[in-house]
Design a protein around this nucleic acid. Structure first.
Lengths: 206, 206
DNA sequence: ACAGCAGTGTGAACAGTGTCTACATGGACG
DNA sequence: CGTCCATGTAGACACTGTTCACACTGCTGT
């Protein structure tokens, strides 16, 4: 997974860039952004530290790449939840993308942090479509679900372009608070009810 | 500001603990959590690196202390907004604490990040009252404002204990998205309108 | 087929970091 | 006045990101 997609030169290593990205992703999964240590990634790829600089300008560039891959993972999780919902159930579709987002944050806290705490990347999250990467960004999925809801019910006739951000803000904020906030240790049922309550609040408040 | 309050022994340095905390806070203000570098703090205090370990067990302990101080700053900012609102204006008081929170995040992004991105601290944010520190925590202020609103209007008769978290989630999420998200560079007027919109959404959705 | 070459990985080095240890110092208190 | 414990120092260690000169490798053009 997380194949770069482009060229596959098969030089000395095979595809070091992909190997470093995979190692970085594994580190991110276990320990969040700070755990993405360049030297450790090269170690796991069985390569000297300097080799990384043939593929990434910086430790930040590696972290950036891991972050983009993690954002794609979030989007995939959202789409998976979406798959079970009928196309005309606008209410359900909004709930699904929100749930996908929140559940991913709980299931993969490290990746989630890297996806959205790496500052420069959030700016990309709302951008049209990433170059090669296939799917939509998490923000686009949420925004699209909101569009559907607005069409289905005449929910907010004067819906201004910021409404999707407000919804995202609420969902993202709950995810963060559940991640390392006062609600960290919560049993599954209560947490799931918090998801539902928040999404209801968002839908009602828009 | 940020005086520890307790003993002031005037040993070699005077009060190194406070000096380190001040230096750490300044570093946090400029560069967020990663910028809180123990050695740099000792350098600014004019002291050897090892000296810090007489007052903080860890770099993490220093960061933790800076985080608590920053949380107190957030609370102060919220209370400052609250001061201009009449006691019986429950609507206005909820808005005020939310605005204080959001405006602080924009004015002091580095401190805000340290206040709420340092994982272990968020758990404390909701706790009753911190040991020596005078005022309320940001969460308590928000929760209190919500209580007022519930009393004033029979807003949510079956208000479950999680409602304040949902409101906090929405406010916090917007703050984060505005900090290093796609809305980063936004003119002041638009940003303030986003604050108002979100708080309206929260109030309507509760 | 062979020389060249650009892409790729190596090894050693540098500065900077957190952290530990043995040692020095100086103010407080008997 | 003398002792002692809290405080600060010096130096070391392991680790990090980053850079440099160098070595290899496999494709390219003649």
């Amino acid at each position: 997974m997380t194949t770069t997609g482009a060229r596959r030169p098969t030089y000395h290593h095979g595809d070091l860039r992909a190997a470093l990205l995979a190692a970085g992703t594994e580190l991110a999964r276990q320990g969040g952004p700070d755990a993405v240590v360049l030297r450790e990634a090269t170690r796991r790829a069985g390569v000297a530290p300097g080799a990384a600089y043939r593929h990434f300008a910086d430790r930040d560039a590696l972290l950036h790449a891991v972050s983009q891959a993690a954002q794609a993972d979030v989007a995939r999780a959202m789409e998976a939840e979406l798959a079970a919902i009928a196309d005309d159930d606008a209410h359900g579709r909004l709930r699904a993308v929100g749930l996908g987002y929140l559940r991913f944050a709980h299931r993969e806290p490290g990746l989630f942090r890297v996806a959205f705490e790496v500052s420069a990347d959030l700016a990309d999250a709302a951008n049209p479509v990433r170059a090669g990467d296939s799917g939509r960004s998490p923000f686009q999925l949420l925004s699209h679900a909101l569009d559907g809801l607005v069409e289905a019910r005449a929910l907010a006739p004067d819906r201004r372009p910021g409404a999707e951000f407000l919804a995202w803000a609420a969902v993202h904020g709950l995810a963060v608070l559940l991640l390392d906030g006062p609600l960290r240790s919560l049993d599954d049922a209560t947490r799931e009810r918090a998801y539902a309550d928040l999404l209801a609040m968002v839908e009602k408040g828009l």
